[in-house]
Write a protein that binds this DNA or RNA. Sequence first.
RNA 1: GGCCCGUUCGUCUAAGGGCUAGGACACCACCCUUUCACGGUGGUGAUACGGGUUCGAAUCCCGUACGGGCUACCA
Length: 506
Amino acid sequence: MSKRVRVRFAPSPTGGLHLGGVRTVLYNYLFAKKHGGDFIVRIEDTDQSRYVQGAEEYIFDCLRWCGLDPDESVQHGGKYGPYRQSERKEIYRKYAEQLVKDGHAYYAFDTPEDLEKMRHDFKTEQNTSPQYDHTIRMKMRNSLTLSADESRKLLAEGTRPVIRIKMPDQETVSFKDMIRGDVSFDTSLVDDKVLLKADGMPTYHLAVVVDDYLMQISHAFRGEEWLPSAPVHILLWKYLFGLDHMPRWAHFPLILGPNGKLSKRDGAKYGFPVFAMRWTDPKTVELTEGFKEKGFLPEAFINLLALLGWNDGTEQEIFTKEELVEKFSIERVHSGGAKFDYEKAKWFNHEWIKKSGVGSLESGVRNVLIEKGIAGIDDVVLNKVIGLVKDRCSLLTDFYDQAYFFFKSPENWDVDAVKPKWNEAKKLFFAELTRNFELNPDWKATVLENNFKEIAAVNEIKPGEVLLPFRIMLVGGKFGPAVFDIAEVLGKEETIARIEKAVSVF
RNA sequence: GGCCCGUUCGUCUAAGGGCUAGGACACCACCCUUUCACGGUGGUGAUACGGGUUCGAAUCCCGUACGGGCUACCA
C-alpha cells in the first residue's frame, strides 16, 4: 500500500519557519519519497484570531527554496481537499457530535472566567496547575452535570458550548513510536481536552485525527512537544475510526539553542539565523533574516538539518537530497534533543560551495555582489572570479569579502607592509614591469608570472621581495588568491592602472 | 507540583553484551603555500552518578541527579 505522509503547519504570528519545523518537513519528505509515497502539507488555521495574512505563502516559499515541495497541499491541489482547516469546519462538527452521542465527549458551558476560577480554587502545592479532568469535571458546568433543561436554557440564552473529550478513568493507553518504541500513559492523568471550540473551529486534537482518517494518512511524524497529547489522539482514533486505521507515529527530538530550547521569538539573538527564510513579524514589523539571506545554499541547509539527529551509520556527512532520500530511515533518528551548532552549519555550507559548480553559484553570488553595490558585472569575469575564490567562502555572502577587489580598485593600501622596504630599485622594477605588461600579447597568469620573475632576475631582485607589494597594489592588502590569477582576471589595462596608482602613493 | 521524553569528547554523533570507545565541527601544533585561505598530518578531549544482572555493560534492569517538553476554547 502506498504511503501517505503529512506534515501540518500553523500560520501563526509567533514566528517564521524555524529549524525544527524545516527538519520535521524534511524527515517526513524523505520518508515519503524513499517509499514512493505522497508528501502532504496541511495548513492549520484553526485559531483564526492568530491567523496571519501572508504566513501561509511564506511557508510554501520556504519549502520551495529548500526543494521540499509537497505533492498535495492547498497550493498544489490533490483529491483529498479542502486542505485548509477553516474550510472543513462542518466535517469536524459532525465527528465531535458523534463522540458526544457515543458518550465519549460532552458539552461544556464554562466561561473563561469559570475556568480561571477553577484553576485558582483547586490549586494546591501538590497540584500547581489543576486540569479539567475526571476529578473535577463533575464540579463544572457541562452536559454531564446539568439537566437537559438547564442545557437547553443555556443554549437558548446564546451560550456557545465547547465539546470536550471524556477521558476514561484508569485506562492505560500505549502505542509504538517508530523512534522511541513503546510509550504509555495513564488516562486518569490526562485532562478532558477541548475538541471543538465555541466558535465551531476544531482544536488540533480533533482536526488531526479526523483529517488523517479522511485523507488516508499512513504515517504522521511530528515534534516531541506533541508526545504528551498522543493519548488523546489515540483515544479519538479508537472511538471514531478504530485503531487499525491509525497512522504510524514518530516523535522527533527537539532542536535546542545554545542555552536550552531554541525560541522562535528570539530570532536573531543567537548570532545565527533560526528561520529558513526572512520573516517579518506582523506586529512589531521586526525583520529577522533567515538561512537563505545569510548566504546558505538550500542543498547545504537540508543536509545539515538532516544530520542534526540522524545519520546513516557510516562516516559520510555530505549528502545530496537524492542520497538522503535513498539512505534515510526513521529508525535511525535519534531520540535525544540536539543542540544547534552554527560553526558546523557553516562547515556544511562551505563543503557545498566547494562542491558546487561555478555555474550553479553564479546567480547567488551575483545577487550578493549587487546587494553590496557592485554593478555591471561581466559574466565571464564573474565565472572566473567564482572559480578562484569559492574554496575560501563558507557563506554566499563571503563572496563579497573575498572578491570585491576584482570589481573595485583599492582606495587604501596596507602601506605599513610595503613602506619600510620600499626603495628606488623596487620602483624601477615596477616601472619596467608595466612596460613589459603593456607590450604583452598573451595575458595569461603563467606568462605574467614568468615575465615577472625574469624582470626580477635582470634587476637582481628576489621575486619574493616584490611579490607582496604587487599583491597590495592589486588588492590593497595581504589577502586574496594567487596574484597572477588576479592579474589575469583584472586584465591588462586595469592591472597596469592599479600598479601606477599605487606606485604614486607608496 | 504532576505526567512524558531524554543523557557518549565543548558541539553533532558511531559502537544496540566482547580489541587501546571511532568519525566530524571547533580548538592547538606541524607541513604545504614568497599573502590569506583551501588542503595534508598529528594532538587535547566523552560513556552523568550509584546499585544490580553477567565471565564480560556505553549497551540490559532499578534508583538518583541533570536537561527538555507538556500541563490553553495555541499549535
